[in-house]
């Protein structure tokens, strides 16, 4: 490992100072650490080193070495290499470190490398009583996020079809990740794709290949879930006392209009019969619609219908 670390530091020092694209051959003869005896051994070592640089986040690009465009060489654009320093204080770094320790991705912790790049932070032994798992592995999410920020096309298999998406954003909702963006060749302005249903994700190399539609708003882009919507009617629903406070919490627009020892009557705003019935049925036989009468009859008919 020592040798690899030394060689990479030498290679990176060279690429950051040379100021022009350099060929693999020039690297082999200039940088200390590439004394491999055969072409094949050098090629293998150099390929691995390039992968390692990219893993670290080093922007390694191939460019023509001269105006005649005969040869290609490697270059690390120094503007892209360095971190745009967000200017964090030690307190802010520690807060980020604690947050990154409290959150997992599919059971995995995030690496400390990101905090190191920002200047590091002393680790405290927090009791670890709160933590959240955001469900999906960070490698895949990171690849998609990179496609979003660099405006690269993302390709993946989804419901038996290969898709081509201009990725606009990621949403985490109720434990699931969704990628939002227009699908090339599809009529909808944007679509949502569940990340855990994607197969064979590939991100194009080309950067800046689309422009995000100016009217796009990530917040309102994911279709609302069933039972949400605008409300204009009121239903009276009587709940057994033991489930009443849960019902109130689930329906913030509800008002209590009556209370007895055994039950609580709530007035609940709703827009569609069907979604209100579904919600009331979630309380089994502990909730009864009292009014309007059509709604009450609709629920009974719904329950009695054979499946």
């Amino acid at each position: 490992m020592q040798k690899v670390v030394e060689r990479i530091l030498n290679l990176l020092a060279f690429l950051l100072t040379v100021g022009r694209p350099v060929t693999a051959d020039e690297i082999r003869h200039t940088v200390k650490g590439y004394e491999q005896p055969t072409d094949e051994a050098f090629r293998r070592t150099f390929e691995r080193d390039k992968d390692l640089l990219r893993t670290l986040g080093v922007p390694l690009e191939l460019r023509h070495t001269d105006l005649w465009e005969v040869e290609l060489g490697y270059v690390v654009p120094s503007d892209d290499y360095g971190l745009d320093d967000p200017g964090l204080t030690d307190e802010e770094r520690s807060a980020l470190l604690l947050a990154s320790q409290a959150v997992r991705f599919g059971g995995q912790r995030t690496e400390l490398g990101a905090i190191f790049k920002l200047g590091g932070a002393a680790r405290t032994t927090e009791s670890g009583t709160v933590y959240a798992d955001l469900g999906h592995d960070l490698d895949q999410l990171g690849a998609l996020y990179g496609a979003i920020t660099d405006k690269k096309i993302a390709r993946f298999d989804y419901r038996n079809r290969r898709r081509q998406i201009e990725p606009y954003g990621l949403i985490h909702r109720r434990g699931r990740w969704y990628l939002i963006g227009p699908e090339r060749g599809a009529p909808e302005p944007v679509k949502a794709f569940r990340v855990d249903r994607m197969g064979l994700i590939a991100i194009d190399e080309a950067v800046g290949t689309f422009t995000r539609a100016p009217e796009f708003d990530l917040k309102s882009s994911l279709a609302e879930l069933p039972s949400e919507g605008t409300t204009d009617m009121l239903a009276s629903v009587r709940f057994d006392t033991d489930v009443a406070s849960i019902a109130k919490r689930q329906m913030p627009g509800a008002t209590e209009v009556d209370r007895t020892q055994a039950s609580v009557l709530l007035e609940v705003p709703y827009s569609a019969d069907r979604s209100l019935i579904g919600w009331v049925l979630g309380f089994d036989d502990k909730a009864v619609i009292e009014a309007p009468d059509e709604l009450r009859r609709a629920l009974v008919a719904f329950v009695e219908a054979p499946t």
Binding site: P59, T110, E111, A114, L141, G142, Y145, G146, D150, L170
Partner: peptide, 10 residues
């Protein structure tokens, strides 16, 4: 310092 990778930033 090196820039953050997309996965690190996210």
């Amino acid at each position: 310092p090196l820039r953050l990778t997309p996965a690190e930033a996210l």
